[in-house]
Simulated assay, not measured.
Amino acid sequence: MNSRIADRIATVMFWAGALVVIIILGSLTGYVLYHGGKSISWDFLTKPPQVVRAGGGIGPQIFNSFYLLVLSMAYTIPMGLLVGIYLAEYAGSNRWTEIVRLSIETLNSLPSIVVGLFGLLVFVNMTGWGYSLISGALALTVINLPLMIRITEESIRGVPASLREASLALGANRWQTIIKVVLPGAFPGLVSGAIITSGRVFGEAAALLFTAGMSSPALDFSNWNIFDSSSPLNPFRPAETLAVHIWKVNTEGLIPDLRRVADGSAAVLILVVLGFNLAARYLGRIIYRRMSAT
């Protein structure tokens, strides 16, 4: 076969495969948004679900999802940055670093249900916290930390070695070079990675079933005492996130308008995850242009 013909056939196959994936994803997304978009309103986004009569919404579930995001990323980002910097700048190629990278790859491939059972044993039972936001946040940290470490390591390795050499030649020590030269150079990739990692929090349900719980107490949004069980800021209260809520209303069927709530919740969840991914690409591009002056 002529090499030119083989190249054209391979190109057509690649385009066809990409087109099939785009059609499948677009069809699924369009179907969910079409059926769920009709249910989205201000009341739906702010009111709690109604068990007795129809007309409830997903207000507490949205707040729980964002609050869990903040708690989880407060652990994930600092730890991911520190480990990523160590692997990229300090760790050499030896048996110890091979064990660390193997452990990271193993954690990254663990099913979320396994992480949930681990969180149930350690964060829920051994600590005595019970089903709580803090237990769910730590479980999500176990899930997202390997990805954040890999993103940090790859972003730092992508910084040209000439920048490090120039900084050291000007008299800066190694730590000053990392803080003032390497990290700013890797900042666009770090921002994009952090946002993408944050988006994974919203779609997680299996691990949260065993750690954060499947119900939320009645919340008083005027109560800012984090030690009060009715305060929305209390990290030791159980919390039902948006993804868990979708699973719950479809399996239990206790609310009269479950189809409306489930479709609307799924549409909101897709829009939030899509927004996080678009924001990651947009911010990464803007930051790169400003820092590279291109």
Rank of each mutant, 00 (worst) to 15 (best):
D7L: 09
T11M: 12
V12K: 04
M13H: 05
M13P: 00
A16G: 14
L19K: 03
V20F: 06
I24S: 10
I24K: 06
G26D: 14
L28F: 15
T29H: 11
G30M: 12
L33S: 05
G36H: 10
K38L: 12
F44R: 08
T46N: 09
K47F: 13
P49D: 11
Q50A: 14
A54K: 15
N64A: 15
S65N: 06
S65Y: 01
M73P: 01
I77R: 02
M79N: 08
M79E: 03
M79H: 02
G80D: 01
L81Q: 12
V83G: 06
G84Y: 01
Y86M: 10
G92E: 09
N94E: 12
I99D: 02
R101T: 13
L102A: 13
S112M: 05
S112N: 13
V115D: 06
L117I: 15
G119N: 04
T127H: 02
G130M: 04
I134T: 04
G136A: 08
A139K: 07
V142H: 00
L145T: 01
L145P: 03
R150G: 00
I151M: 02
R157P: 05
S162T: 15
A166G: 09
A172P: 08
K180E: 12
V182Q: 07
P188A: 10
L190E: 12
G193E: 09
G199M: 04
G199W: 05
R200N: 06
G203K: 01
E204D: 07
A205T: 15
A206F: 05
F210T: 11
F210H: 02
A212E: 01
S216G: 12
L219Q: 13
D220Q: 09
I226H: 06
S229H: 10
R237E: 05
T241Q: 04
V244T: 09
W247I: 09
V249G: 04
I255L: 13
L258H: 12
A266Q: 02
I270K: 03
V273R: 05
L274S: 14
G275K: 04
L283V: 12
I286T: 14
I286N: 08
I287F: 13
Y288R: 14
R290N: 13
T294C: 03
